[in-house]
């Protein structure tokens, strides 16, 4: 039932993300026509959206889980109910993480395939299968942002979490803008985007996975020792 519950909580976010993408895709399609240069630039700009998706999907953290928000109280009603059930905090966090990550994967892969389909200039030399593969690659690169957002959501109110998170990511982006290496995740989402380069950005995926693992374990530990 926990899976179902998490799905109920997340499904509107999935719909929101998908709608957002559809609209963006449509706008790009209409404005850019088929010119490769513009398309490439636009595709790179999608990096913002990938990151935002990651952030939003992860943001159904323990702190935001109720209609009754009260910063002073520090925690929200329904969380007490959940914590009164015979489920370990690790299980609760784990299930939520899996559902969120799955949803994120589906949305990103679908959107990426949408891009691929709409812009024949990108098709050259690639198949739908590889588009799916590129989508998965982008998804992996975004995992780092997902877990960062999940960690923030444990502590912060929705507003702080969103703006604070975006700000932190923005700062990291700015700080790494000179880093040319394949490890640079931001680059992999923009100029190095698989759709453009037609290659899989393995180093960046590696970076993202490493960061994800560390953040995941850290967040788990925080949740286990946290007081409510």
């Amino acid at each position: 039932m926990l899976w179902y519950k998490n799905w109920l909580e997340i499904r509107w976010r999935a719909a929101f993300s998908v709608t957002m993408y559809a609209l963006q895709l449509y706008a790009v399609y209409r404005n850019a026509g088929n010119r490769p240069g513009v398309v490439a630039a636009m595709t790179g700009a999608f990096a913002y959206l990938w990151i935002l998706t990651a952030l939003m999907t992860a943001g159904t953290g323990i702190k935001t889980q109720s209609a009754n928000l009260s910063a002073a109280k520090g925690l929200h009603g329904s969380t007490y109910f959940t914590l009164s059930l015979p489920v370990s905090r690790s299980d609760l966090f784990g299930i939520r993480t899996i559902m969120g990550v799955l949803q994120m994967a589906v949305v990103i892969v679908l959107a990426n395939c949408g891009l691929w389909a709409l812009f024949p200039a990108l098709h050259a030399g690639t198949t739908l299968g590889s588009a799916v593969g590129y989508g998965l690659a982008i998804f992996v690169c975004c995992l780092g942002f997902y877990f960062f957002s999940a960690l923030l959501a444990v502590f912060l109110d929705p507003m702080w979490w969103l703006y604070g998170g975006l700000l932190a990511i923005g700062i990291c982006w700015w700080l790494t803008r000179g880093v040319e290496s394949g490890l640079n995740v931001f680059r992999a989402l923009q100029q190095g985007a698989p759709l453009i380069t037609h290659t899989i950005p393995w180093p960046a995926m590696g970076t993202s996975l490493a960061i994800s693992l560390i953040l995941f374990l850290f967040t788990l530990r925080v949740i286990q020792t946290r007081e409510f």
């Binding site: 109920l8 209609a67 009754n68 009603g77 007490y80 009164s84 015979p86 489920v87």
Partner: peptide, 19 residues
């Protein structure tokens, strides 16, 4: 967890899942 299996709780905040 074992305790939670054998106990019924009513918390101070009577909130459940709003949706």
């Amino acid at each position: 967890i074992e305790i939670h299996r054998r106990t019924g709780f009513v918390t101070e905040d009577k909130q459940m899942y709003p949706y």
